[in-house]
Nucleic acid binder design. Structure first.
Lengths: 334, 334
DNA sequence: CACTTAATTGAAAGCACTTACATTATAAAC
DNA sequence: GTTTATAATGTAAGTGCTTTCAATTAAGTG
């Protein structure tokens, strides 16, 4: 009762009548100790008001068992699916997942500055954000293992896809199905911090069409803001023109779904009157039967996490740049 | 360039040609050591980029505040939207977001046991998971501020909705639109750890129909597993019967979308031949134009986080049970 | 009933430092 | 020149915790 100093794990062990090892186990992996013992330890902890000392713990722990993910403010399903992949890879391990959402360059840079120094992450995954060389250098210097997704950098490991190839695949597919008047729809917003793969998808699409002797007419290239309403309005405009396209490649599944809805409202048969093709293969896409270019988002997150873990446990694994394959998923809309 | 391991005080001692005690003294009480020695130690420190690791970690842990979210293995969009709400509330603060995904009771209980004691977290949000009274007690005892979402408990704050009322609202709405043969579709899986609001939604739906003199026939109540294929197969079976319903209330938007697709494939006009109504109001629902009962998922996460923060900063705020309103969102399918 | 196998547990060896104590060298005092 | 403070440093014993490993016991298994 008259204890001046804060109770330690030893005190807990003594009053519970077990060894400190057991107390430690109760604190970190309760299932490893017998029910009875556990509850008596809990009782002792409660009785003494024991609080483990962070510093000692940090010292004894070789690792932090925490990995962080920096992601643009996650509103888009594609980020969510990537995160899901990361979470699933971490699930079988004892790593915690810390999420840093970024909604401004300022905040992103602040993370990039402090995280490597803080030393309380074992690894970092950065989703779809691009940054200065300087920061890459810093991450390296301070030894914070990092894996990039969707934005490659020489000195850091990354998981990416070939957006341009994806555009080409879409073109090939639509051409092979015999469509004549192909259109493209993508979003405009290039956030100050994010990256914009849409441009690349368009480039690939355009290139292949040109090669096939079906150059993409400028009037068939549409860029509109990402939101539902804008997309719908644009779709309506496109689809009510006299020379409306007979196939639309949307740089994003979400927008493709919006287009699909408008097409239905206009009484167009899909894919007979209008083919619609997306990019990503989100969860929804399966539900609505969208034909799309799959980039396997879940997988990208999972692989990024696995790559990271392997580098953490084995520091001299080489930096890798993994290129994920794209697949055409043929469903009902094209 | 890349360090194998972070340098320790031993490394510094070795390269400076002194004992670790001296290095420690330089760090803690510099005037106790000779000028020359001191500067050579400093030199070694700079050269190795030495950072007292454990201490740094402990310090960082102390000043970085973090709140944790325990969520069932997040595959369902509804959890994601809730998380998004939490993240957005935390965004303006300096709190970090740590995510604990749960895919077994075992793991869940482990979190519940250790988190309150370890003092890593400043606050905890538990999404759609139910647990023993004992754990609630423990959370309380150890002073880990907690907010529950979708599973109320007397002693802990919570954010919830009235699922039964939601079922009633759906019934009222469909009846008011003049539909006659109403059906219900929900999922079966009651995971060992999760909770199952679907049952309540059905209860409310059934109750109101009975009250209105249109009792829900058993043959119109369908429970099928959550996945697309099973839902589709069920929908196809239901919609090809002679006495097919003219309206379906799906306990979940995701399943509603699947039903919608099947209806279209069968050439049914929606909502003329078949009305479809969902529950949740996911992002997708807007894209496909689904009429639904909105429970404002993002908002629930946001409110939970705000509630938590207010309790953290002001411990004597009372425990609150916030009931979120439900709204019918009328779109195109009913 | 002997023989694996699995579940519990404690002893003890770290972890990265701090600090009391001992040792050595140096300079001042006699 | 011996003695004695004094400063500078190293040795080694903690610090509070985690984790490996081996010992003990319980529970099947044929």
């Amino acid at each position: 009762m008259a204890k001046k100093t804060a109770p330690t794990i030893y005190d807990v062990a003594r009053t519970a009548g077990v060894s400190i090892a057991t107390v430690s186990r109760v604190l970190n992996d309760p299932q490893k100790v017998n029910d009875e013992t556990r509850s008596s330890v809990f009782e002792a902890i409660r009785q003494l008001g024991y609080i483990p000392k962070a510093e000692a713990r940090a010292r004894a722990m070789q690792q932090n068992r925490r990995i962080g993910v920096i992601t643009p403010y996650f509103t888009a399903p594609s980020f969510v699916q990537r995160l899901r992949g990361v979470a699933s890879a971490l699930n079988s391990t004892s790593y915690e997942l810390v999420i840093y959402t970024v909604e401004s360059t300022h905040k992103f840079y602040r993370y990039l500055e402090t995280l490597p120094i803080n030393h309380y992450l074992d690894g970092l995954i950065i989703l779809s954000l691009q940054f200065d060389d300087l920061f890459a250098q810093r991450l390296l210097e301070f030894g914070l293992e990092t894996v990039l997704v969707e934005y490659p950098h020489r000195v850091l490991s990354s998981v990416e896809i070939d957006d341009q190839a994806g555009g080409r695949m879409a073109a090939d597919y639509l051409l092979s199905k015999g469509y004549q008047r192909l259109a493209f729809l993508g979003d405009t917003v290039i956030p100050e911090f994010g990256i914009h793969p849409i441009t690349l998808r368009l480039a690939g699409f355009r290139q292949r069409l040109a090669e096939a002797g079906h150059p993409l007419a400028d009037k068939y290239v549409h860029t509109v803001p990402y939101d539902v309403d804008a997309t719908r309005r644009a779709a309506r405009a496109i689809l009510t023109r006299d020379d409306r396209p007979d196939a639309i490649f949307s740089a994003t599944d979400l927008q493709a779904v919006a287009i699909l809805k408008v097409a239905r409202e206009l009484g167009l048969r899909v894919p007979e009157d209008l083919a619609i093709m997306g990019f990503d293969d989100l969860d929804i896409s399966e539900y609505v039967g969208l034909t799309t270019v799959r980039q396997h988002l879940d997988e990208s997150g999972k692989i990024a996490a696995e790559l990271l873990l392997s580098r953490i446990t084995n520091r001299d694994r080489p930096v890798q740049h993994i290129q994920l394959p794209l697949t055409i998923i043929e469903r009902d809309t094209a």
